[in-house]
Amino acid sequence: MLLPLLEFQTVSYTYPGASHPAIQNLSLAIFAEQKIVILGHNGCGKSTLLLLADGLYRCSSGVISWKEEPLRYHAPILNQWRQRIGLAFQDPEQQLVAATVAEDISYGLCNSSLSRAEVAQRLHQTLHDFSLQDLADRPLHHLSLGQKRRVALAGVMALQPELLLLDEPTAYLDRLQTHHLLAELDRIHASGTTIVMATHDLDLAYAWADWVIVLHEGQLVLSEPAQQVFAQVDVLNQLQLGMPTLLECWNALPATWRDRHSPPKTISELRSYWLNHLPR
């Protein structure tokens, strides 16, 4: 039987002074090599879930485990934990801590027990992988938002985590920057890293994810393969999440056209399908 990489068992978390829990009795398993999206409205607990997963918040009740080993909140264990699980924050500005790009990427590496030579080697590899060589000596406050996000991601990936958590990675990015970021994430995923992305962008989730988790008011509603989640139109509508635009277009086609085909994942798939079925 396949072991989950990360597992939440009846986890709850309440912010200090809050009357309601941000996460409530949540049980969830994340398996390796998946592209996972956490969907939900603002304030549904997506970011809190990621902070709990990285050990930054301590759950009020329940257990979080990595490959069946429960998380213990001791500094050395937490440091190891955070090397396996990388977290990229929604606002990259909060994550960048050093003065220049190269220094910032090296920050996490210097905090691990790597030798200076190994730090240098990994730094150069990361700068190369993220095409940041030209920006290496640039101060962080001279970068655009897209560049900052790339540097923040590079800083996390330099530690070669097995699981990458991303909090709204496409927020404030334009279409082209989003496209570049997704290409970068596909490359990271292809190298064997499991990715969990919190977003409220349904189109993005539909096009990118192969597993979808839906949260509502701190509780787990769905955790299923993407196709099965997006087939549950009633549930999504009940949660007022809506449907991905591509799927709306697909559903608007005559039922007889759609019968023998699975819904398209990209606009070009829809276009080619459309062209093949148009009366000549």
Partner: peptide
């Protein structure tokens, strides 16, 4: 989250 151990080291 980036393993700060009380010492701000960079390469």
């Amino acid at each position: 989250s980036r393993g700060f151990n009380g010492n701000f080291q960079v390469y």
